[in-house]
C-alpha cells in the first residue's frame, strides 16, 4: 500500500546509501547527502539503516498514507505535522491510514530525511534506489518525486517503537559559522603560500549554487597561482589541469575565485585544479548548510581526519545503542 504524494516541496528525492562502484564511468555514488540523518531516521522506524527514504531540501512534501506506518524526520529542523498537528523531529511517530503528513517552515539546517517503516521500495538501479536525475537512475522513473506519484513501501524488518527519540546530545546540525575540515593536497602546490594562508584565514559564504553535485562558496580573497607554462592538454587558464578525476569532497577553485566542494552527485572528473579535500567526517554537515551560511575551512592533517572519522563512527554507534538496544 503506497504513500501518495500530494505536493513535493522544492526538490524531494528518494535516497539511500548510494551506488558505489561506477564512478569510473561518471556515475557517482549518490545517496543521502547527510548519511547520519537518514541512518538515524531509519533506525527510529525499525528499518535497515541503509533503507531508502526521502531527502527534502528547505521545504517538505505533503504525503497521504494509505496504510498505518511509523515515520521519523531527522537532519534539518523541518517540523512535521500530522493532519495539521505538530510532531517532533528526531522522534518516531505513528501515522494512520488516511492521515496526511506535511511540514512547517524550516527552522535550521537544509535537508530533512523522512523514513517510513518498511522503507521506500522503488526498483533499485545499479544496486541503489537513490535518485540521480542527470543519468535518469533510481528515484521515481529516474527523477525527483512529483505530485501524483505513489511511493511503494517495503515490509518492516523490526517493530518500530513509537515515541523513541534521539537524545539531544547525539543530534547533529551545523554550527554558525560552519567549519569544514580540509586535508590539503591534490594540486595544493599550484597556489602561492600567501593564497594557501588566505584560503584558511578567510570566512566564506555558501552561494546559491549549492546542490547534490556540489557546494559553491563566495566571499574570500582570490587565490594567486604559482606561475608556470601550462602543460599540453591542460588549457590556458592557470586553474586548468589535464582533465582528471575529482575525489568526493574535493575543493576546486575555477580561476581561483569561488571554491566548489563536490558532494554525493559529483561530476567524476574535469579540468579544474583542486586544493584539497573535505574530510569524510564533515561531508554530512555540508548537506545541512543553507545558502549564505558563513563558513570557515580548517586545515587538518591525516591523523586528525582519521580521528574525526572514528569520532563520527562513535556517534553513530551511540545512536544505535540508544535506539536499538533500549
Amino acid at each position: 500500500m503506497p504513500v501518495n504524494v500530494i505536493s513535493a516541496g522544492i526538490a524531494t528525492t528518494i535516497q539511500d546509501m548510494g551506488r558505489p562502484g561506477y564512478y569510473h564511468l561518471g556515475i557517482p555514488i549518490g545517496g543521502a547527502m547527510d548519511r547520519l540523518a537518514l541512518r538515524t531516521a531509519n533506525l527510529l522506524v525499525g528499518n535497515a539503516e541503509e533503507a531508502a527514504g526521502l531527502e527534502c531540501v528547505f521545504v517538505g512534501p505533503e504525503l497521504e498514507f494509505t496504510e498505518d506506518a511509523t515515520v521519523a524526520v531527522c537532519g534539518a529542523e523541518l517540523p512535521p505535522k500530522l493532519d495539521g498537528d505538530p510532531r517532533e523531529t528526531w522522534t518516531a511517530f505513528a501515522v494512520k491510514a488516511g492521515q496526511v503528513l506535511s511540514f512547517d517552515f524550516l527552522k535550521a539546517g537544509a535537508r530533512a530525511y523522512i523514513a517510513i517503516s518498511g522503507g521506500i521500495n522503488t526498483p533499485p538501479m545499479l544496486g541503489s534506489r537513490s535518485t540521480y536525475a542527470i543519468g535518469a537512475l533510481g528515484g521515481v522513473e529516474g527523477r525527483a518525486v512529483q505530485p501524483g506519484d505513489s511511493l511503494p513501501l517495503g515490509a518492516s524488518v523490526r517493530a518500530a517503537k513509537e515515541g523513541a527519540s534521539v537524545p539531544a546530545k547525539l543530534r547533529r546540525g551545523p554550527d554558525n559559522p560552519a567549519e569544514l575540515r580540509v586535508l590539503p593536497g591534490l594540486y595544493w602546490h599550484r597556489i602561492t603560500e600567501e593564497a594557501q594562508r588566505d584560503f584558511f584565514d578567510d570566512t566564506w559564504k555558501v552561494a546559491n549554487e549549492a546542490d547534490r553535485m556540489g557546494y559553491r562558496f563566495q566571499g574570500g580573497r582570490k587565490l594567486a597561482f604559482v606561475e608556470r607554462d601550462q602543460p599540453f592538454g591542460a588549457g590556458a587558464d592557470p586553474s586548468n589541469i589535464t582533465d582528471a578525476c575529482y575525489p568526493y569532497g574535493s575543493v576546486q577553485v575555477p580561476s581561483g575565485t569561488e571554491p566548489i566542494v563536490l558532494h554525493r552527485d559529483a561530476v567524476s572528473g574535469g579540468g579544474y585544479f583542486m586544493i584539497g579535500t573535505v574530510i569524510s567526517a564533515d561531508m554530512d554537515l555540508i548537506g545541512q548548510l543553507q545558502p549564505h551560511t558563513p563558513t570557515r575551512f580548517v586545515k587538518v592533517d591525516m591523523e586528525t581526519a582519521l580521528a574525526a572519522r572514528r569520532d563520527r563512527a562513535r556517534t553513530m554507534d551511540a545512536i544505535r545503542n540508544a535506539l536499538v538496544a533500549s
Partner: peptide, 8 residues
C-alpha cells in the same frame, strides 16, 4: 591524498 578516502 584526496582526503581520508582517496589517493590521487
Amino acid at each position: 591524498f584526496g582526503g581520508d578516502e582517496h589517493i590521487f
